[in-house]
Design a binder for these strands. Structure first.
Lengths: 234, 234
DNA sequence: TAGTGGTCTAGACCACGAA
DNA sequence: TCGTGGTCTAGACCACTAA
């Protein structure tokens, strides 16, 4: 009952959510009829509230037994970000900006960003280190029209947080991954042997229907492994 | 009305589904009150039917306007399979079994399959080609206890189809991807230069709570790129 | 103004699980 | 037997959209 003006099914839902968050999986939730009495609402209203929590994956109904806290569903599919992956290993992720400027999109970047060649893009190149050791070199290209004043506002620590603040949090990404050898420039920046394999990771990040970001990252393969977690269909 | 014995909300749902599949996104679905009259049911029953289709992503409600065919949501996250990727390029995917036998799990495989070292596993090694050219070498390990008679029944064309038939379709996978150079054996089988980079792709495929399959695949990087499509959280 | 989906009521009967 | 969730009814009022 966080808000008297709230819709009843929302009140019930949030009440149950507050009871249930933190409970062990398998713990019983209040029965529907109990909530009917507590809130003085119809059972359909309670069911609407519970339905939302079931769809959300928080609760699980067992006919004839009751409603219970569901075991947490696996996290949504994702590729770990550089910062996350370093954190997992207990390393400090650092990042130095080599380039942050407005450019005209070349043919490849224009196509990937669904723009026309020559349109303005923001090019942001970073060398990322873990505990001071170069790990990867990332070139991100952003659609400037969607990010007015982005360069002037100072470069953020986290690109995705900055996008989030502008309501441009990507909800979908298409990644391609291959192995290669580094170019001389890349080898120099990554301080690695030019003959050693590297991992190339390209991403198109999409929010709604708009392509927000295109990035190309080259990782030192001897120091980095990409992790992907996938939920399959149906 | 595919089945007179079916629950009413199921009848309504399947009726609407049959109307709607194949319709262009944005086409109107029948209004709730129209379905109330057509089926002679209460509006809550119709709403239950429509709710399911909305959650499924087939329909989209717009208050004050109506219910419409939703634009197809992007497919669930996935890594393209070898066969798919070859099909996309118009190449014929082939596969020759180099090994298919019962083994005792070594320490790495045992841990990955959540077994104990020495437990029985099925080891299936395949060399996969596209238009006759070697592309990758795959070692799959399966928990033998979950797949009785698997080796005796003849190796299937598609592993995942075979798992599906046994109700062991993976619903979750954890993948790791890195770049490396091939071992001499791998270079020989892949007919590639031992100094050239390869892509290593490891997978743990999980159905329910059981680890079904662990695989390690090495791709010729000059001929293969992994594609990953990801839906982010909320 | 008429139609739509969003919310809500106050009941009802059923199948199923546990005691 | 009793409590549970699953299904279903026959209405109601609301806010919103479109004509």
């Amino acid at each position: 009952m966080t808000d008297g003006r709230a819709l009843k099914h929302v009140q019930v839902r949030e009440y149950v959510r507050s009871l249930v968050t933190g409970s062990a999986p398998g713990s019983p939730a209040p029965s529907e009829r109990e909530l009917v009495h507590r809130f003085g609402v119809a059972r359909m209203t309670v069911r609407q509230a519970m339905d939302a929590l079931v769809v959300e994956g928080l609760l699980e109904r067992i006919p004839g037994r009751g409603t219970f806290v569901a075991r947490p569903r696996r996290t949504a599919s994702r590729i770990t970000s550089f910062t996350e992956e370093m954190g997992r290993r207990g390393l400090l992720a650092e990042s130095s900006t080599l380039l942050a400027r407005r450019e005209q999109a070349g043919p490849g970047v224009a196509r990937a960003l669904s723009l026309t060649e020559g349109d303005a893009v923001i090019h942001w190149r970073r060398l990322r280190r873990a505990d001071g050791v170069p790990m990867c070199l990332e070139d991100a290209y952003l659609n400037e029209v969607l990010l007015p004043g982005f360069l002037q506002s100072g470069m953020p620590t986290s690109l995705y947080e900055a996008l989030d603040q502008r309501g441009l949090r990507p909800t979908w990404a298409e990644d391609s991954i291959t192995a290669d050898v580094p170019s001389p420039d890349e080898a120099a920046l990554l301080e690695c042997d030019p003959g050693k394999p590297v991992l190339r990771h390209s991403r198109r990040a999409i929010a709604g229907e708009k392509v927000i970001e295109v990035s190309r990252t080259v990782y030192r393969a001897d120091r980095f492994t990409l992790w992907v977690q996938l939920g399959h269909e149906s």
